[in-house]
Write a protein that binds this DNA or RNA. Structure first.
Lengths: 255, 255
DNA sequence: CGCCTTTGGTCCGGTATCGGACGGATGGTT
DNA sequence: AACCATCCGTCCGATACCGGACCAAAGGCG
């Protein structure tokens, strides 16, 4: 299918490139399907490809030998991965994989590196993106250290919602519990709490956002800062639901 | 005092620059004293200076509106700050300040940016450094999410020890409690536990490392990975105590 | 020297979260 | 339809950590 057109890409990084930079990359972009659990990068292994996401959600997970692990960041069509390439580091000690299936573009890391070395603007955009990821990680650390599960879960739902079209997020309690590094039972009961406050609804394998504004208030300050950093640095809002529900058409109660 | 000589600088980043890159920066380096609590960077404020540390320890702390905060990374003579300059981001939403007094070099961020735009090698070194910081943050997040206070404290002591000459670290329980986002009392009792295992000794305002190897074993896997990443990417070991005690001359018991 | 601030030690009850176990519901497969 | 794997709900006791209170020791400063 050849190179994509900049007008049609949904990835925000690609979309905000100068047309010159876009032309630099586009010949090397290859459209790919990204099924659930697809590994974009493995711990301490050289990544020879980088991915710009068009849809779906990717997850960055760190783990230690004994098996304990925790998610430290997520990204959707606002981002790319792995960032190690941008930093000229080759690899990084964590796993990156698709958490919600989608699609995107693949580019050989060599090509990306080459383009980076030639364009100051491209470098600036992507290093800034690295900073947004870094800030996200920072606030994840802050949230894990200071917040209760309820707030952390709310934060996590919001971050997924930002990267999802519509209000329905397809994930099991089990998966969630791994992401947040808590027990599966804690997820179950915590989801009930959020449901009781009418912030979300749940079904088997699904979480539906009901009152986005309410969730933000509830999440207690660790949601928002990374998102503001994204819009400051990249220039577009991070969340770009075509529709959305900022408690939009009424009827959502509580708080 | 004019420009420093590369042979005499103790900062590992400056020391590992190519001599050409060093000459690029050195005219702009100004030796400065860095007293305890000195602010290297404030949240969301443009940093017009960057600092390369020669001695002492700096701390990166994130906080939320309600006052909760947590340390998400530290650095000593192996690093510099703020990294936002390297990423062309101008500012970042966290505080960076000296936790243990020391000294270092200051450079105007404009000059650093300029040098970065001219030298691929310099860029590579410093973006790789950014990755080491990022990995450190990642493992801090992992530690907060999965470890008990005892291990987190051990990890923290190790990281400080790496950046200290000798085995004595001067910090109060109160300060420690803020860094780890736990209660002061928890720090007190946890230090006692480590002391009981003969891993450390304590005095008013002091922590003395007794059995470094033992601490590493105890810290449970979240110590080590970021440090390996540093040596992989920057090429020298992170910790550079002139002497050290890897449980060296025997006599340290336990475990 | 005596005073006052800082720092550290200890006791308390309360609670968020854990770890294990088990049963019921749901949905896909043959 | 019958079966089985996955997913979800709930109960249990254990425990790590919190928040508050209080006092003792150590050190700086007049």
């Amino acid at each position: 299918m050849g190179s994509p057109l900049q007008e049609t890409v949904r990835n925000r990084l690609l979309a905000s490139l100068s047309s010159q930079d876009f032309q630099r990359l586009s010949p090397h972009l290859e459209a790919v399907d990204l099924p659930r659990a697809f590994a974009l990068s493995s711990p301490n292994q050289l990544s020879d490809c980088s991915y710009f996401i068009e849809s779906g959600i990717g997850s960055i997970v760190a783990s230690v030998a004994n098996g304990q692990s925790a998610e430290i960041g997520i990204f959707g069509r606002e981002g790319m991965s792995p960032t190690a390439v941008i930093l000229n580091a080759g690899s990084a000690p964590y796993s990156i994989f698709m958490q919600v299936a989608g699609n995107g573009f693949r580019i050989e890391s060599v090509q990306l590196s080459h383009a980076l070395s030639e364009s100051y603007l491209l470098r600036t955009l992507l290093t800034r993106y690295v900073q947004t990821v870094s800030v996200q990680t920072t606030f994840t650390a802050l949230a894990s250290a200071t917040l209760h599960i309820e707030q952390r879960l709310a934060r996590w739902v919001l971050m997924c919602h930002d990267r999802t079209d519509g209000d329905t997020i397809g994930l099991t309690h089990d998966f969630l519990s791994i992401m947040l590094a808590v027990r599966r039972q804690s997820v179950t009961t915590t989801l009930h709490v959020l449901e009781g406050k009418h912030l979300i609804a749940t079904e088997r394998g699904l979480v539906v956002v009901r009152d986005r504004k309410g969730l933000e208030d509830f999440a207690g300050g660790t949601y928002g800062e990374p998102e503001r950093e994204y819009s400051r640095l990249i220039g577009t809002r991070l969340s770009g639901s075509e529709e959305s529900n900022g408690k939009a058409h009424g009827l959502n109660s509580a708080k």
